[in-house]
C-alpha cells in the first residue's frame, strides 16, 4: 500500500504532506514555526501545554498542532490575535502556577519556558503568583528533581517509558496537585529500577530535573528521543 498525500492550507499557503502527518510537522516541513513546549519529536504527543494551539477554518474549537493529523482541504491558521493572546496566557499560567525564579534557576538561559516568555512578549504575569513549596528530591547520585519548577509537561515520563523503556516516572494526584513521582512515590535514591540514563534531564524543558553540578546548557538535548529512534529504525 502506498502512502498517499494530503494537501491543505497553512496560513494561506498550500502545502502537500504525507497522509497522517500532524499539523505541527506539516507546518515545520514548510518553514512555518509553531511554538511547542510539551511536545518533543520522538515521543507520543501529549497535547497538554496548549501552546501549539491552532485554529482550523470552519470549526470554533482550537486544536493542538502536535496531536492533530492533517486532513485534505483543511485551512489551518497558526497566527492570529486570539492565538497570540492565548499563548501568552499559557505562559503566564505556567509561570504563576509554581515557583519560577529564573535568576536563581539552574536552567537560566537554557529554559524553554523562559525562551517562550521572551518570544511571546510575556512581560508580566496578570495572575498572582502561587508561591508553593514542593518537594525536592536529591537522593539520587546525580539526578535531582525540583518539583517547584515542574510544568507537568510529562516529557520525562514519556522518555523514560517510551525510549528508555523503564517507566519509573509517572504522575500522582490530579489537577493542580499533580506531581511527578519516582517508582511508587519513593525517593529517587531508593529506586532499584532507575537506570540513571539521565534522559529525563536531557528532555526537561525547564529546570525541574537536572544533573547535579552540570551546566544545563550542556545537559539538555531536545533531540535525544528523535535521535535514538532514528538509530533504532535503521
Amino acid at each position: 500500500m502506498s502512502i498517499g498525500t494530503t494537501t491543505l492550507k497553512i496560513d494561506g499557503i498550500e502545502v502537500t504532506v504525507p497522509e497522517g502527518t500532524t499539523i505541527l510537522n506539516a507546518a515545520k516541513a514548510n518553514g512555518i514555526n509553531i511554538p511547542t513546549l510539551c511536545y518533543l519529536e520522538g515521543l507520543t504527543p501529549w497535547g497538554g501545554c496548549r501552546i501549539c494551539m491552532v485554529e482550523i477554518h470552519g470549526t470554533p474549537k482550537l486544536f493542538p498542532a502536535c496531536a492533530t493529523p492533517v486532513n485534505t482541504g483543511m485551512e489551518v491558521i497558526t497566527q492570529s490575535e486570539k492565538l497570540r493572546e492565548y499563548r501568552k496566557m499559557v505562559v503566564q499560567l505556567l509561570l504563576s502556577e509554581r515557583t519560577h525564579v529564573c535568576s536563581v534557576c539552574v536552567a537560566n538561559n537554557a529554559c524553554e519556558l523562559q525562551k517562550l516568555a521572551d518570544e511571546l512578549g510575556v512581560d508580566h504575569v496578570m495572575f498572582e503568583r502561587n508561591w508553593t513549596s514542593q518537594e525536592i528530591d536529591s537522593t539520587h547520585k546525580s539526578l535531582v528533581i525540583d518539583r517547584n519548577r515542574c510544568i507537568l509537561c510529562t516529557r520525562c515520563i514519556r522518555v523514560c517509558d517510551e525510549i528508555e523503556g523503564v517507566h519509573i516516572l509517572d504522575l500522582k494526584n490530579r489537577g493542580k496537585d499533580s506531581q511527578i513521582i519516582i517508582d511508587l512515590d519513593q525517593k529517587w535514591g531508593d529506586s532499584d529500577y532507575c537506570t540513571s540514563c539521565g534522559k529525563c534531564a536531557k528532555v526537561c524543558p525547564v529546570g525541574a530535573i537536572y544533573v547535579e553540578s552540570e551546566a544545563l546548557s550542556e545537559t539538555k538535548d531536545k533531540h535525544i528521543a528523535e535521535f535514538i529512534l532514528s538509530r533504532r529504525n535503521r
Binding site: H100, V101, C102, Q114, A117, D118, E119, G121, V122
Partner: peptide, 10 residues
Amino acid sequence: PNMEGKSKYG
C-alpha cells in the same frame, strides 16, 4: 514598545 523578543526573565 513591543516587548516580543525583549522580555527575557532572569
